[in-house]
Design a protein around this nucleic acid. Structure first.
Lengths: 228, 228
DNA sequence: TAGATTGTTAATCGATTAACAATC
DNA sequence: TAGATTGTTAATCGATTAACAATC
């Protein structure tokens, strides 16, 4: 099934399959991989893997599996990773610094091309081999360096303003680490990573787990047996 | 509607409403807030807000809206944020350090209670006011300090082993920053934050945006008019 | 009462999954 | 051919949304 828009849920899993395939390719020996194996590595079930991959086209062989190299290439291409998307980080605080020196980005083919801040104590400093520039130079830098991804690592108050500057400079993809919702035109993609929210969601499930454990303990004391 | 399990999608949005409500409460003046306002701040639609909040119980007043303070309390309680869930970070590299000194956690009520690494060059060092201990002391520390959340910030190779140690120590909630899938028993919750995967997904949408722009440009040149 | 806004229903949409025919 | 595994169908499930009666 070609040329149908790929579901969002599938897009979100493609990078997971990609990583699993890279692992298989590294381990060598195996030239093909089954949906069952891939599912195990990705932590999903095999039907989902096959359905997801079917959106890219019919790249498997019945009775055999998927050619590792070929599938790697197809997913890489589908995700747009064959192209260079230089990124800029705005807000060079603790988090911005960690992101700027995060090895994982360059390993996965993403190039941090510029850093920005508004604090004169930070502007000019070199972080991870790149000099921090003033936010006022954002637009110029985006155009000159062909930056296509903006990574917001500012305090929440500044996030919306920075997002607007990025949009004004022509950036169409934003990764937002600031604990704030930013509003952008519909042709701009924003993904939000909020560390505190992740912990808060975890807190909910932790509480639930504990409630279950407490109930079980109460039942045990009362001599209630759980259903077989 | 009480005592129905709250949908996962709703749980994931509660922290967003919480943040919006905190903003409203800070701005004062307004003692109540409508689903419409809340939706605007959270970046969702009003029907979703009302549906989500209805899972917590009927805490709104028709024709008036939601009492800000009361709703704040209910969401806080529902998420388990009235309790103390001490967290430990394992892997004190760049990311681990950033997380250890991340203000957002303490602001949102999460306490980083312990840090662990296996590198003798790092063990003993103090990061964000806490001495890094050796991973071998994990279990002891988890029990002594009542740690209930484990934050994995190790290289991918170590992630599974660390997850098992956490589970063995009795931890039921794990936040995994390592670019690897970890397998845990079904009673343990894992949330995964993968910075590279976020960028890869963004790359897909960036590519799509660009493809659309290119197609539009081609149409323009050919004199094709978009449908009104 | 008139206006505002919730809580809930029901329709719709999208994602998941088991099952199996197709086919290597 | 027999065994293995894909690709696709169809059933099911869960999430979203518009609409509106209930009610402040």
């Amino acid at each position: 099934m070609r040329n149908r828009p790929i579901p969002e849920a599938t897009v979100a899993r493609l990078p997971v399959y990609l990583r699993a395939l890279l692992e298989v390719a590294e381990a060598r020996g195996e030239l093909t991989v089954s949906s069952e194996e891939l599912a195990g590595m990705a932590g999903v079930n095999a039907a989902k893997v096959r359905k997801d991959l079917s959106y890219l086209g019919s790249y498997g062989t019945r009775g055999v599996g998927y050619d590792v190299e070929y599938l790697l290439y197809q997913i890489t291409r589908e995700l747009g990773l064959t192209q260079d998307w230089p990124a800029a980080i705005i807000g060079i605080g603790n988090l911005g610094r960690a992101l700027a020196s995060y090895r994982g980005f360059s390993e996965r083919g993403f190039r941090i091309a510029a850093l920005f801040d508004v604090d004169d104590g930070v502007v000019g400093e070199e972080v991870g081999g790149i000099a921090v520039r003033h936010l006022d130079e954002l637009k110029e830098s985006v155009v000159d360096q062909g930056i296509s991804i903006g990574i917001i690592a500012t305090p929440p108050m500044a996030a919306q303003e920075v997002a607007e500057k990025l949009v004004d400079a022509g950036v169409k993809s934003i990764l937002n680490f600031a604990p704030a919702v930013v509003n952008v035109p519909p042709d701009v993609s924003v993904r939000k990573v909020d560390l505190s929210i992740e912990l808060q969601i975890l807190s909910f499930y932790q509480q639930r787990t504990q409630a279950i454990a407490t109930a079980r303990e109460a039942n045990r004391r009362l001599g209630v047996r759980p259903p077989a």
